[in-house]
């Protein structure tokens, strides 16, 4: 464990807590993309299949349970909670996210480190996570008024993988043979997708203006 990875995990944890806080306290998911939340639930379900077979640490297992629990409960809230589901803007959240799942699955079948069931699904989860934010970014472009909590959620979610990139650099420099091109490239693509959001987020923060993405 290194400080970059810890910072990344804490930032990631903060992002899901901000979202759960928003949904649970103000009983609203306005501006939140259900498609992105469903994709993240799939990412965690396929990434943490080894939760019962391989144990690394209490921390590792605990965080996996938190991410699994939070992502599925957010999907549940947005789909089935009587009050929250009414605040979901279904007409705006129209990204065909299943068109992301299939290419990621095909790519995982083609490019992976080992051709085993767990490894292919794990690789699939890396590719899917890289693009999972797209429905949310598209939704933010459509809904002009981005409330603070949703903006913070996307900002933290984008920041965590950035810390992970620093973690991979650190591990590459300190651990012999730590080379994982697939993880690195997927993580880099993921972070780059947030680039324009980060730009407008900082602009709004610097000028103390409401966050607005260009249409």
């Amino acid at each position: 464990m290194n400080i970059f990875r810890l910072a990344g995990d804490m930032t990631h944890l903060a992002s899901v807590l901000v979202l759960l806080l928003k949904i649970h306290t103000i009983k609203s998911c306005a501006g939140v993309s259900l498609k992105t939340q469903e994709l993240y639930a799939i990412v965690f379900a396929t990434r943490y299949l080894d939760i019962f077979t391989s144990f690394y640490s209490i921390y590792n297992t605990l965080m996996k349970l938190i991410f699994l629990g939070s992502s599925f409960s957010i999907v549940w809230y947005m789909r089935y909670h009587k009050t929250v589901r009414r605040t979901y803007d279904r007409e705006q959240d129209t990204f065909r996210h299943w068109f992301l799942v299939l290419p990621c699955l095909l790519l995982a079948l083609l490019i992976h480190e080992k051709f085993t069931f767990l490894e292919v699904l794990w690789t699939f989860s890396l590719y899917l996570e890289a693009v999972a934010i797209l429905p949310q970014l598209v939704l933010l472009q459509r809904t002009r008024n981005i409330d603070n909590l949703t903006g913070q959620y996307v900002f933290l979610l984008g920041g965590y993988r950035g810390f992970y990139i620093l973690n991979w650099i650190y591990r590459y420099l300190t651990e012999p043979h730590f080379v994982h091109w697939i993880t690195w490239i997927a993580g880099l693509v993921q972070t780059l997708l947030y680039a324009d959001f980060f730009y407008y987020y900082f602009q709004s923060w610097k000028n103390n203006k409401k966050l607005q993405l260009p249409a």
Partner: peptide, 10 residues
């Protein structure tokens, strides 16, 4: 077992 090295990450 460097392959698993990335598996200890979340």
């Amino acid at each position: 077992k460097d392959g698993s090295a990335a598996k200890d990450e979340l």
